[in-house]
């Protein structure tokens, strides 16, 4: 296990020196501050308990940036510096450990950049709306960080499958756009074709099919409560029993979304001829 940690730290150190990573954390900070500021301060009614709307904007922002960052970083790390990967593979270590080490390092990088980027705006939020807002913000960010685990795994899978830098970046961007936009549009499109009974299952079950949707709904459940979803929320309670069970299912879904890409990558990497 210590070898995994060692490789992870090495990866993290390499990434930390990467200018792109610094740039990304700067971008996180600026965009989140802007969102928080325009979301609350300029509305003229600053100081409300109800933080749902701003929280939703921040969920969306984090849902945009964290997957993009994780995907690009992973793809660059695997495909641009192949000599390093080969060197690691020659070490007297199981390949699964090499890969898990790199995964750990990449996740640490994404988490680090996100915490730096989302930390500073938290101060503004705490100042403007106080403890409840700060807590909601922490929850939202905490949930969004789970996306780092998912999409780093996906990026590994993408780079191991395609192998070449340009192709991998293309696929990674495709994956990103699919989960950000296309998936939701498809889901909303189903309302035109399915019966109400089937829609209920497809729309609620479909949330598990997209980790970004899962995280958004989990965050809104925490921050705004189940009643936010109106009659749809009542259906969710009917299907699952309670908010706790529904949230547990959501987290389970995210776990599957983390484990499956990483597991597949390990299998691929073991058999791959570098």
């Amino acid at each position: 296990m210590s070898s995994v940690w060692w490789i992870g730290r090495q990866e993290f150190t390499l990434n930390r020196r990467n200018r792109w990573v610094l740039l990304f954390s700067g971008l996180f900070t600026i965009l989140t501050i802007l969102t928080a500021y325009f979301g609350m301060v300029t509305s003229g009614y600053a100081g409300f308990q109800d933080f749902t709307r701003t929280a939703a904007s921040i969920v969306n922002l984090a849902g945009f940036l964290i997957p993009l960052f994780a995907l690009l970083l992973g793809v660059f790390s695997f495909t641009s510096n192949t000599e390093y990967l080969e060197l690691l593979a020659t070490q007297p270590l199981p390949r699964s450990r090499v890969l898990l080490g790199k995964y750990l390092g990449l996740v640490m990088t994404v988490l680090g950049a996100s915490i730096v980027g989302f930390g500073a705006p938290g101060i503004i939020i705490a100042l403007v709306i106080g403890p409840i807002g700060a807590l909601s913000y922490l929850i939202v960010i905490g949930y969004s960080l789970l996306l780092a685990l998912v999409f780093t795994g996906v990026s590994m899978l993408v780079s191991l499958l395609s192998g070449r830098t340009q192709l991998s970046i293309g696929i990674a961007l495709g994956v990103w756009i699919f989960f950000e936009v296309v998936y939701g549009v498809i889901m909303l499109g189903t309302t035109l074709y399915l019966t109400p009974g089937a829609l209920r299952i497809v729309l609620i079950g479909g949330l598990l099919g997209n980790p970004i949707d899962t995280v958004r709904v989990l965050s809104l459940l925490q921050v705004g409560g189940i009643h936010l979803f109106g009659p749809g929320g009542a259906t969710l309670i009917k299907l699952t029993g309670s908010v706790a069970v529904a949230s547990a299912i959501g987290f389970l879904g995210l776990l599957v979304w983390t484990v499956v890409p990483v597991g597949l990558s390990v299998r691929l990497f073991k058999r791959q001829d570098l």
């Binding site: 939703a56 904007s57 969920v59 969306n60 849902g63 945009f64 950000e180 936009v181 939701g184 889901m187 909303l188 309302t191 829609l199 209920r200 729309l203 609620i204 949330l207 949707d213 958004r216 709904v217 809104l220 936010l228 979803f229 109106g230 009659p231 749809g232 929320g233 259906t235 969710l236």
Partner: peptide
Amino acid sequence: EVRFYLLSP
């Protein structure tokens, strides 16, 4: 149930 996609991109 569409409301679960409220505020989504």
